[in-house]
Design a protein around this nucleic acid. Structure first.
Length: 425
RNA sequence: GGAGAGAUGGCUGAGUGGCUUAAAGCGGCGGUCUCGAAAACCGUUUUCCGCUUCUGCGGAACGCAGGUUCGAAUCCUGCUCUCUCCGCCA
């Protein structure tokens, strides 16, 4: 949610920001119109309520003195009826205002490059040399099938398309990756590990921005008002919903492993092979709560924390800065990490690190006090994958494959796999 | 799933229709005292919204949503959550 004062005082700047990210700039004018109506009604209702409070107080005093108050009560009856009418009207206007506010995306940060779509994204830096082979490298799903560690047929039988069963060393490798990432972020990068529910209420989904606009992307329970999280960002960010934190608690840094669930509606033809795009996948997520003036620096650090995973796994990657047109709904600025997939001869997204500034904090009412006497203010939230585990496993299979079809285990993972150095048939 | 109890400010905890403008205590903040601190004493204390900005004025919020009433923390209805006991269960 954007600051309503910013929209009122600086509508042209907001429109420009919305246009830059290809959003509907007419939302601003609709907001302003409804907002004015809302303020007018609010003033009228408040005035009537002030009168009601005053006169009701007087009635109490008259009753205490046993004076007659029938005619005053009769008069107040009509005032109360009018208040009820206006309150109902106000509620409707408020609902309309909320619909507009919660449907409006975040504004891009000043530093974000202008652009229309993914083609305008910028490569910021790259690490490692794209893996070269003396043989024709296989795709990860083929490697997994051949080694008997990824079973798509079994997953299709028990669940359907876009699911996978990990078997034997394939399951162990996934578990090793999760443990390795959690250890790295807790022991070396200073994050606190949390384990949160994967089913959350609608309010949590609204807090981080998945609702109301993106309900079709979510799995929803049939008999309960609960949704499966598409990312631990939702449950972890909402950990502090409707709280006022003290400045010395900041920054708060959480790392959370969770399963993530996505319907992938509208991506039917996309990435149907392999484990790149699944309805259910493991992810280790980093989430930060920081003071507003520190969030830009914290995004750089967060991105670097995610990069360290790829560096330690010795997987070649690059860092992409998303242009204004490619930003997600809630993000003010985003870096994507893309890892090298030799079978496709290209980089693919494995992490997305974003600064949401006060957008989510405002939706979820997460505030802080800069000192005991200071005003409460919205803090800034950030998050990033550190990393998507399934895609990471796929990248390892491809980059560490050998000519005999076996896959070498990255050195840092071996302690997590009972010293196993290689998966072979 | 069954039976019962409960939800009040940062915390504890009073408050069963109008001197409650939510008591009191703890904690926090400011001050007096002190070389400094502690203690003591004095003062202060939530969040949100609108109007006005020099101060300020008004409204809302006692789990949530409705209702009764001139007036609701207080009465009524529904819901959510927490706790206790029983049943079931990893």
């Amino acid at each position: 949610m954007l600051d309503p004062k910013l929209i009122r005082n600086n509508p042209e700047a907001v429109k420009k920001g919305l246009k830059n990210r290809k959003a509907d700039a007419s939302l601003v004018d609709r907001f302003l119109a409804v907002d004015e109506e809302w303020r007018k009604l609010t003033a009228e209702v408040d005035q009537l309520k002030a009168k009601r409070n005053e006169v009701s107080d007087k009635i109490g005093q008259m009753k205490a003195k046993k004076e007659k108050s029938d005619d005053v009560i009769a008069e107040m009856k009509s005032v109360s009826a009018r208040i009820k009418e206006l309150d109902a009207e106000l509620q409707q206007v408020e609902q309309r205002l909320n619909d507009i506010s919660f449907g409006m995306p975040n504004l891009p940060h000043m530093s974000v490059p202008l652009g229309v779509d993914a083609r305008d994204n910028l490569e910021i830096r790259n690490w490692g040399k794209s893996t070269k082979f003396s043989f024709q490298p296989k795709a990860h799903d083929e490697i997994g099938k051949d080694l008997g560690i990824l079973d798509f047929a079994a997953a299709a039988k028990i669940s359907g398309a876009r699911f996978v069963v990990n078997r034997g060393q394939g399951a162990a490798l996934e578990r090793a990756l999760i443990s390795f990432m959690l250890d790295l972020h807790t022991k070396e990068n200073g994050y606190t590990e949390v384990m949160t529910p994967v089913l959350v209420n609608p309010k949590s989904m609204q807090g981080t921005g998945q609702l109301p606009k993106f309900e079709e992307d979510l799995f929803k329970m049939k008999d309960e008002e609960l949704y499966l999280i598409p990312t631990a960002e939702v449950s972890v960010t909402n950990l502090h919903r409707e709280e006022i934190l003290l400045v010395d608690q900041l920054p708060i840094k959480y790392v959370c492993h969770s399963l993530c669930f996505r319907r992938e509606a509208g991506s039917y033809g996309k990435d149907v092979k392999g484990i790149i795009r699944q309805h259910q996948f493991n992810k280790v997520e980093l989430v930060k709560f920081v003071e507003p003036d520190k969030s830009s620096d914290e995004l750089e650090k967060l991105t670097f924390d995610a990069e360290r995973v790829l560096q330690k796994l010795e997987l070649p990657y690059r860092v992409i800065e998303l242009c204004t047109g490619d930003l997600g709904f809630s993000a003010a600025k985003t870096y994507d990490l893309e890892v090298w997939f030799p079978s496709e001869d290209k980089y693919r997204e494995i992490s997305s690190c974003s600064n949401f500034e006060s957008f989510q904090a405002r939706r979820a009412a997460i505030r802080y006090k800069a000192s005991a006497t200071a005003k409460t203010e919205y803090l800034h939230t950030l998050n990033g994958s550190g990393l998507a585990v399934g895609r990471c496993l796929a990248a390892i299979l491809e980059n560490y494959q050998q000519s005999d079809g076996s896959v070498v285990i990255p050195k840092v993972l071996r302690p997590y796999m009972s010293g196993c150095e290689k998966i072979s048939k």
